[in-house]
Design a protein around this nucleic acid. Structure first.
Lengths: 197, 197
DNA sequence: ACTGAGATTAGCATCAGGTACTAATGAACC
DNA sequence: GGTTCATTAGTACCTGATGCTAATCTCAGT
């Protein structure tokens, strides 16, 4: 019953922990690859995976693929950062951004400013009633640090429209306390775009 | 020789373009799935893929998986947006950002402001000589629209340091012409962080 | 109506990377 | 010697393909 310290027959335990690590680092390893790496038979690897509940290569790929697909899609494919909660076109809007470790400095786990800015700016773009617009000017103040995991609520309000210029204020709160204030001047297109055909 | 308008025997051309689109939208479709969708045999789908040079499901998965792996890693895992080209700590720095479709509005293919801002802010953070810092204030002007594909060169310069406040100016150029100007006040930590333990 | 070309389908052998299961062998321990 | 756990071997089968050959279908041109 002693848990056989170093060589439990043929260091199964050790191999399995290593195997788990290896696969998590590189999910694209076949059983054959692993068998070679550990100098055991393929069957042993299969047994190990079975015991550890590690799915086969294809499953792992399927997983990694669709998982990252989602991530990339939601990071890049979208025009608004965060989730749009409320929108009165031309007037005001609210969005929520759930921050995570990836948005933060590793060292301090404080959310990097540009993620907060992105929520604000993209919300500002969303509220103005225009087919196409660009940011002209912005005036930003970060009032309080934001920690990874915090849930940011942004409120945007159009305060003035003059010609093709839209003045939008955005406030962001984290648990009722203000962490960000931004003033944006957004410019609708067809006027700034007098460049190439 | 007439390019047979609508039904070129059995709308092969049409099917192939649709197929290409379908697969690019969802790379996880098997030949069988596709065969059902188009009401043709699996063999036809295989021929189509062959003609179009579309690899098999597993290849596509492998691709998507590792590609997005990279993407997620480079978008999320990194603290600086763009590529750091030059850095004199505490003085100045240069970074380059290659913009792409994903950074742009689909409608206009103009790069969204917050991507440009992110390059600027993260470069500003990089140049100041501090273990940990946060953005306090920023003053931003977008001078010219940036199109998807443009290569942005950002130059940051520390203009003044007063206590824990660092004043950094960032200019971004696109093909020698200025497109962005930003003034940042960055605050080093251990002073702003007087909140929770 | 006949021919020929292109489009589509069928069928089969083969492969990779597995699952699932059975059984043999090895080693260690008492 | 017997028991137990670890490892290996071997077989049948599965999916989603490739690669190849061959048959059929459809239509346009003459």
């Amino acid at each position: 019953m002693k848990t056989n310290g170093s060589s439990p027959r043929r260091n199964k335990r050790e191999r399995q922990t290593q195997l788990q690590q290896l696969i998590s680092e590189d999910p694209f390893l076949t059983d054959e690859d692993l068998a070679l790496r550990f100098q055991v038979s393929i069957q042993t690897i299969r047994l190990d995976r079975l015991e550890l509940g590690i799915p086969e290569l294809r499953e792992r790929m399927r997983h990694a693929a669709s998982e990252n697909y989602e991530k990339v899609r939601s990071m890049a494919g979208t025009e608004i950062v965060g989730e749009l909660i409320d929108l009165k076109l031309g007037e005001s809007g609210i969005s929520i951004l759930e921050t995570n470790r990836e948005m933060a400095f590793k060292k301090t786990s404080m959310v990097m400013g540009h993620h907060i800015y992105s929520q604000a700016e993209s919300l500002a773009m969303a509220v103005i009633d225009a087919n196409a617009a660009l940011t002209g000017v912005s005036n930003i103040k970060y009032l309080q640090p934001v920690e990874s995991g915090d849930k940011l609520v942004a409120k945007a309000e159009v305060v003035r429209v003059r010609g093709n210029k839209h003045f939008v204020h955005v406030l962001i709160q984290n648990r009722q306390v203000q962490v960000f204030r931004g003033k944006f001047i957004l410019v609708t297109m067809d006027t700034i775009k007098e460049e190439q055909p």
